[in-house]
């Protein structure tokens, strides 16, 4: 299987078909190469590696997104974290810990996003 095909498979398993189908439908001539890159690189080359399980990769992803303030991506990856086996309580613990390292305002914004996503899914 090519890195694109492997990446597409993991991306769908982690982010869900609905999200990936939306991203595919929204792809334009301008964004196609970027969609191809994230599928081959982030999903095909990194998320497919056996060295860490997906639950652990979700923990790392959540914290990197909070630390850099990427709140839209955070919403996506809170859903992914649930799919990868983190519980709502574990996501709460991760976000509490971000307050120490990224500051309380960053954690506050992250909690607002996670609360919205978890409430939509009926997890809180």
């Amino acid at each position: 299987m090519s890195s694109y095909d492997e990446g597409e498979k993991v991306r769908r398993e982690v982010l869900g078909d609905a999200h990936v189908d939306r991203a595919a439908a929204a792809t334009t001539g301008f964004t196609a190469d970027f969609q191809d890159l994230i599928t081959r690189y982030a999903w095909g080359e990194i998320w497919t590696r056996p060295g860490l399980d997906r639950r652990t990769r979700s923990c790392i992803t959540l914290t990197a997104l909070v630390a850099r303030g990427h709140l839209e991506e955070l919403a996506l990856h809170v859903r992914a974290a649930l799919r990868n086996g983190l519980t709502a309580d574990e996501i709460k613990e991760v976000l509490l810990q971000t307050a120490v390292y990224c500051g309380v305002p960053a954690a506050n914004s992250a909690f607002a996003v996670a609360q919205r996503v978890l409430a939509e899914d009926g997890d809180v």
Binding site: T56, I60, T63, A67
Partner: peptide, 29 residues
């Protein structure tokens, strides 16, 4: 008192998970 006495002492995540979380943030910051 706060980072270790409060956050790291919470039972909700294993020590191993907490260190991974911290490594991710320190790298990203």
């Amino acid at each position: 008192a706060w980072a270790f006495g409060d956050i790291y002492d919470r039972p909700g995540l294993a020590p191993r998970d907490r260190q991974l979380v911290t490594l991710g943030m320190l790298t990203a910051l």
